[in-house]
Design a binder for these strands. Structure first.
Lengths: 123, 123
DNA sequence: ATAAACCCTGACATTAATGTCAGGGTCAAG
DNA sequence: CTTGACCCTGACATTAATGTCAGGGTTTAT
């Protein structure tokens, strides 16, 4: 499919898709006329790229990841493993923090509701 | 403590600390001479900010979190209830997203380790 | 009181990812 | 054949976080 279609499907801008191409992150084949031709598989890859970008990984790191998966080469995987582990522990810490914040908020909401209840009872 | 000391303690550059101050993310008091004076609590806050940044959150989002949790300790409770509820659902969504990412990462790590195991067994 | 080691602000530079615009092909429909 | 909807490349703009440098105060130790 052409670049416009995959952009529409994935919600990623045409500009970004060309950028990924330029970086070698996601390289479509070219038609006779020079148009980029994306395979259906590319759709999934674009979404993967977006997921990891949202995670805060750089395109460079993502390129390492894609190499690992596509070629299943251990050398690439070795490089990428510590990055994953690092991210994983960051994410675990993040989840933990957010859960604390959540408890805190729930507590506060409950106490507001309690207070409201109390003042209603007084009337 | 002065900015240089907290920079050394946290590993965050002086430049960044001044930037956080400028954005209202972490605002130290000022001495007579204009120097920034950080409380010991600030050290923990700086680390929290860094964690969020490493996760790919923007300073704006971080400011939202910090405001949600640190500010509005007790006053204005009634008015603040819908804000709390809003924040709570945002946080729940965030936790959910992170848990998905976590599962995804764990999966990746596992498959890399499997691969390694397999190729060792082949030899 | 002078030097070293800090601190301040302000301005410009940089990197990454993306937006946007210009100038110009391609193609299908009328 | 022309029009409109695509596509191409290239260049400049932008945003976020940070680096760096200039010009100028302050503090501390000798």
């Amino acid at each position: 499919m052409k670049i416009g279609e995959i952009a529409a499907r994935t919600g990623v801008s045409i500009r970004s898709l060309r950028y990924y191409d330029q970086l070698g992150l996601l390289t479509p084949i070219r038609r006779e006329n020079g148009y980029r031709e994306y395979s259906p598989l590319a759709e999934e890859q674009v979404k993967t790229i977006q997921l990891y970008l949202n995670l805060g990984l750089s395109t460079e790191q993502i390129a390492g990841f894609l190499n690992c998966v596509l070629k299943n080469k251990e050398a690439f995987c070795q490089e990428v493993l510590p990055i994953y582990r690092q991210k994983l522990s960051e994410i675990e810490a993040q989840i933990h923090l957010l859960q604390n914040i959540k408890l805190n908020l729930e507590e506060r909401i409950r106490s507001i509701l309690d207070e409201r209840q109390t003042s209603e009872a007084e009337e």
